[in-house]
Design a protein around this nucleic acid. Structure first.
Length: 570
RNA sequence: UGGGGCGUGGCCAAGUGGUAAGGCACGGGACUUUGGAUCCCGUAUCGAAGGUUCGAAUCCUUCCGCCCCAGCCA
């Protein structure tokens, strides 16, 4: 089942409603306006990609795939002072990791510099661009305001020959940074400020990460972007809403230059997610001020952060599909993202038992020194994943939370006299709790029922809870890092007047547990591999893991209806 | 107060004149060797007011609200 127009490998069902962009594209294909679709993902290499970019990546590459077209990866590298190869490398990695491929179509706006320059010469010759000697401050003053028209620069009517000469000398490096700019000659009275003779070239004596010292003038984004799209024969140039006001300039550019194609810009709403930030500036600040451990801190909404947190590319793509694409401002509940990983990992993640806060249990009637191997499904959702063998013996660790000396109402787990099932094996009955001098429970003395091996009782008696465990003698030590939302409020836009956004950082967004005990089968697990720690959540192996020193990140907890009913009770 | 956008349930989001999809969240129930998963059930007249029409979330008018724009950033 595929949508019309797509011989490409697509997976959208017929029933899935098309968003307004896909609808436009479908119409353009049906009407014959275009015979193929070409999109592009155009990041500036000045920062790391985040989940908001993932939305755009999934849109651009997704649309191309579905309609049998192509999507280019193009770096918008027109500002040498802010860009770096570190960022281009990370961006390439991130897009690949998300599962997209641009074949040989990796482009850089900087590759078009010469061609853009030649186009510009033509523009100057036609009297459609001029060299302005005004300072940046003066240009701002002359631009007017939102309600008042701007006024023309005294240099606006320079003779073409003079403009040509000056522009060529700008290129040759005869002028200082800021001494002159080249402006498009459009309309200083336009109600759209972008059309009030926008600057299209500025002087920057700075080395560019790709072109080195070849240039000291650099074209501006609006101008460059439109030309680059046209050069690449992009049919639909998808960008975010804040560029809507720039569209007339985009159109002006492709209409006034002899470019080989005439792309159409379409804008959609960027993604906002609750309890986090999406601005490059703020993310950079978090990193630079050490408020997080780096771009790949698992609490960051960056692609590398999500990856280290344990998110899968599939879950992020599914998330993008679920949130859709539209033009209205939105604030997506992070629970939707969390649900997408749970959904993916539930089907695919291997299960393991891990005790995060251990409580020692001695099974008094279990033979000293005996060890049994218990076969437990690797993933009950998928029998083809087989079983794993878990050692069982007299002394175990269970979760401290699975024992209550005084059980609250509806608490089904262990308490003196109560019986539960140990996952995959025997019923365990709680005897007494051993306490230390301070009254803290240090150990449980219990008994098991040998007749219940396998997890059910021949006499038909039931047990209301199943708890996880790990054999003390076989357990591996592990450090477990628990993450929570980065901020304490869902929407930073609602911040109190004058209050620093960083004061909303959640002080409990990271909790490190060092005494974890995990089943021995986890030994040697590869970095970033995902597991469901039964009854707890999804976890992945952190790259900090060293031989004999396992470190896990909690990707997301399992749904916990018990915690919910308990919360309701209070 | 200039221009450009947007307003459908708590959050996303379909709907394109014929009588409000779906997902998440939330609540209830069934089932369960993860209080997981799965499965049922439940909750909106579409920013407001007028108007056109047999019939409007969809067309018209007015009003209200929110977002974006005055970088030689992208």
């Amino acid at each position: 089942m595929t949508i019309p127009g797509g011989p490409g490998g697509n997976s959208r069902p017929d029933s899935a409603p098309l968003d307004f962009i896909r609808e436009i594209i479908r119409n353009d294909l049906e009407s014959g306006k275009h015979s193929t679709v070409a999109t592009r993902f155009p990041p500036e290499p000045n920062g790391y990609l985040h989940i908001g970019h993932a939305k755009s990546i999934c849109l651009n590459f997704g649309v191309a795939e579905e309609f049998g077209g192509t999507c280019n990866l193009r770096f918008d590298d027109t500002n040498p002072t802010k860009e770096d190869v570190e960022y281009v490398d990370s961006i390439i990695d991130a897009v690949h990791w998300l599962g997209f491929d641009w074949g040989t179509r990796l482009y850089y706006a900087s590759d078009y510099f010469e061609r853009i320059y030649q186009y510009t010469l033509g523009l100057v010759r036609e009297g459609k661009a001029y060299v302005d000697d005004l300072t940046a401050d003066q240009i701002r003053e002359y631009r007017g305001t939102l309600t008042e028209p701007g006024k023309e620069s005294p240099w606006r009517n320079r003779p073409v020959e003079e403009n040509l000469d000056l522009f060529e000398r700008m290129r040759r490096g005869e002028f200082e940074d800021g001494a002159k700019v080249l402006r498009a000659r459009i309309d200083m009275a336009s109600p759209n400020l972008n059309l009030r003779d926008p600057v299209i070239y500025r002087i920057r004596h700075a080395a560019h990460h790709r072109t080195g010292d070849a240039w000291c003038i650099y074209p501006m984004y609006d101008y460059t972007h439109a030309i680059s799209d046209a050069i690449e024969h992009i049919t639909h140039s998808l960008c975010t809403l804040e560029f809507e006001d720039h569209r007339p300039l985009y159109d002006w550019t492709v209409d006034n230059l002899p470019v080989p194609s005439r792309p159409r810009q379409i804008e959609f709403a960027r993604l906002n997610l609750t309890y986090t930030v999406m601005s490059k500036r703020k993310l950079l600040q978090l990193v630079q001020e050490g408020l997080v451990s780096g771009w790949d801190d698992p609490r960051m909404p960056t692609i590398v952060g999500l990856r280290r947190r344990g998110y899968t590319p599939e879950s992020i793509r599914e998330f993008a599909a679920r949130i859709g694409v539209a033009k209205r401002e939105n604030m997506v509940d992070v629970a939707l993202l969390e649900d997408a990983v749970r959904d993916d990992l539930n089907r695919r993640a291997r299960r393991a038992m891990a005790v995060l806060r251990p409580l020692r249990v001695v099974i008094e009637n279990y033979p000293e020194g005996q060890v049994e191997r218990i076969e437990i499904p690797v993933n009950p959702e998928d029998a083809s994943m087989g079983t794993r063998s878990v050692p069982f013996s007299k002394v175990l660790y269970i979760e401290r939370d699975d024992f209550r000396e005084v059980p609250p109402p509806k608490y089904f787990r262990l308490s003196p006299g109560r019986e539960v099932r140990l996952r995959g094996t025997y019923f365990l009955k709680c005897g007494r709790a051993v306490k230390d001098a301070s009254g803290e429970v240090t150990e449980l003395r219990c008994t098991y029922d040998p007749a219940t091996r396998g997890g059910s009782s021949p006499d038909g008696r039931k047990v209301k809870a199943t708890i996880h465990w790990v054999s003390a003698a076989h357990a591996l030590d592990a450090e477990v890092r628990l993450y929570d939302r980065l901020f304490t409020v869902p929407d930073l836009h609602d911040a109190e007047e004058g209050r620093d956004w960083k004061s909303y950082l959640n002080p409990d967004s990271l909790e490190v547990l060092r005494g974890g005990k995990v089943e021995p089968g986890l030994d040697g697990a590869a970095p970033l591999s995902a597991f469901q720690f039964e009854r707890l959540g999804y976890f992945c192996v952190d790259p900090d893991t060293r031989p004999g020193a396992l470190v896990f990140n909690r990707t997301v907890p399992l749904r916990d209806t018990w915690a919910r009913t308990q919360a309701q009770a209070t």
